[in-house]
């Protein structure tokens, strides 16, 4: 895995884009975690560029969810920039991460995976009793 962080300063704070390139599996998971944690510490708003992610597994998703939680608790913002790589999108779909709402009530608006949900919409009419 290779990563790079690009930081820009604006009037409302610092913004950064973290690009992750290559494999992000169990083998690299500590490295990935450190890169993310470092980036969150540097900026107020962090964008993740994941379109060059190659092999990914569930440990990577776990790190990203934890990062989202970290940001939420430290009142920072975390976004996906553009589309994620095809591999990652498939993984998210197959493993049931692409969904409508986030993991805890207050964070649902900012759930990373909501943008990957795309075509997965429930018909909620008259399903609520």
């Amino acid at each position: 895995m290779e990563h790079s962080l690009k930081i820009t300063r604006t009037d409302v704070g610092t913004e950064g884009t973290l690009s992750l390139v290559g494999d992000v599996t169990m083998t690299e998971v500590r490295e990935t975690k450190d890169a993310l944690l470092e980036a969150i510490g540097e900026v107020d708003r962090l964008y993740l560029d994941l379109h060059q992610v190659e092999s990914a597994d569930v440990s990577f998703i776990q790190v990203l969810c934890a990062a989202h939680r970290e940001c939420f608790l430290t009142e920072k913002a975390l976004f996906l920039q553009g589309n994620v790589s095809g591999n990652l999108q498939t993984l998210l779909e197959r493993a049931g991460y692409v969904k409508q709402c986030g993991c805890f009530p207050a964070a649902r608006e900012s759930c990373l995976w909501s943008v990957c949900a795309g075509n997965l919409n429930f018909d909620t009419n008259d399903q609520f009793s």
Binding site: I61, G96, C103
Partner: peptide, 23 residues
């Protein structure tokens, strides 16, 4: 399947070699 992510700690407390998700 839907993943259950409520067991995930914040990144600073995460041991990335352990597993917290459920389905």
């Amino acid at each position: 399947m839907v993943s259950m992510t409520d067991g995930i700690p914040r990144l600073s407390e995460l041991d990335p070699e352990r597993f917290y998700f459920g389905w």
